[in-house]
Design a binder for these strands. Structure first.
Lengths: 182, 182
DNA sequence: TCGCGTTTCCTAACTAGATTAGGTATTATC
DNA sequence: GATAATACCTAATCTAGTTAGGAAACGCGA
């Protein structure tokens, strides 16, 4: 019988899709294998178990998210850059909730996560932030964006009131706050 | 042989401790049972399975966190109240990482979560925020606090630079921002 | 084209953990 | 002291992850 023709990348991509559809917690090797038309032990040829798979989804996602943010920020500065990056960040998390959750998992030596921070740091230079102060600023931006997005995608916000408006105000508060830090 | 004398509350409390020690993901009925000196099926007399247990840990935690924040805010207003609540929030999450994670799980009709929002809304009246604007403000505060705390407890911040200082700046940014929203 | 190694994939088997069914013994209540 | 409620147990089932070892497809050089 013919082979499925899988490789590590195909497995990770399919797993990412599955995680986005049903949630990262519902991702299992058994379900992934059946979706790929393969038995679960076969996945071990491409991936070193479930933990490794989740880590790979995370770093795949971090790379993808980084590219999106990079593209969004292109050519813009200060408030415009911040707004564009924030929108792109939120959009990615909503489109890819499972992958986004996987990105958050602690994994050592993840250069993709570091690249995200670099990108934000570059943006903060537009606010006149350098050195330690820029790092504080980047952490604040990440905290705000991650918090909003995590609460939004886990139904943490229950009151029926426009989340778009809340997010716009959050960006405004960050913009002012970063200007104030400099 | 004598009984262990468990009830639902004792099970939930022990589970919360276990979750804080080893992480919510590592919480299993088997480990909990063995810690309680009981076989795992016995837990079903007190709790309706692992999902139910996690939900109970979450609402137990939400109640506890709410009480801490309430106590922290007592008698203070505006920036002082905000700083005290923020510190208490962060301290709780660091002391109880497993329980804090459980609080985030979506569970319908959780009046404890709603109480948290009420508490923040009350605090925002000090900033002159009412109605929809107050709700936006509360969401922003929650986003910032949750984001910081989530990243901190999952080792999301890797650069060696004081997190206390970052947190102080975050509070300052929120304080200014809330004042600006009114 | 043949043979060769590599790689993908398989089945069989083991493990741990959640869960259900049904029974026994302890505790509380009258 | 009898009776009901209820902790708790063992036995058994199910799902999922993982390991071991083998067979078939693929790619490549002779």
């Amino acid at each position: 019988m013919p082979r499925a023709g899988l490789d590590t990348n195909a497995v990770v991509v399919a797993a990412a899709r599955l995680a986005d559809e049903d949630g990262l917690a519902a991702l299992s090797l058994a379900r992934l294998a059946s979706r790929l038309g393969v038995r679960s032990p076969s996945l071990y040829a491409h991936v070193d178990g479930l933990d490794d798979l989740r880590r790979r989804i995370g770093s795949h996602g971090a790379r993808e998210l980084g590219a999106r943010l990079q593209a969004a920020a292109g050519g813009l500065a200060r408030g415009d850059a911040l707004a564009a990056v924030a929108e792109a960040y939120r959009a990615y998390a909503l489109e890819h909730p499972g992958v986004y959750a996987a990105i958050q998992q602690p994994s050592e030596a993840d250069q993709a996560g570091a690249a995200l921070v670099e990108l934000i740091l570059a943006m903060l230079r537009g606010y006149g932030l350098e050195g330690d102060e820029a790092i504080h600023g980047a952490r604040i931006v990440r905290s705000a964006l991650h918090g909003f997005v995590a609460l939004e995608s886990e139904t943490g916000f229950r009151i029926p009131l426009s989340l778009d408006e809340t997010f716009a105000r959050l960006i405004a508060v960050l913009d002012e706050g970063l200007a104030g830090l400099a």
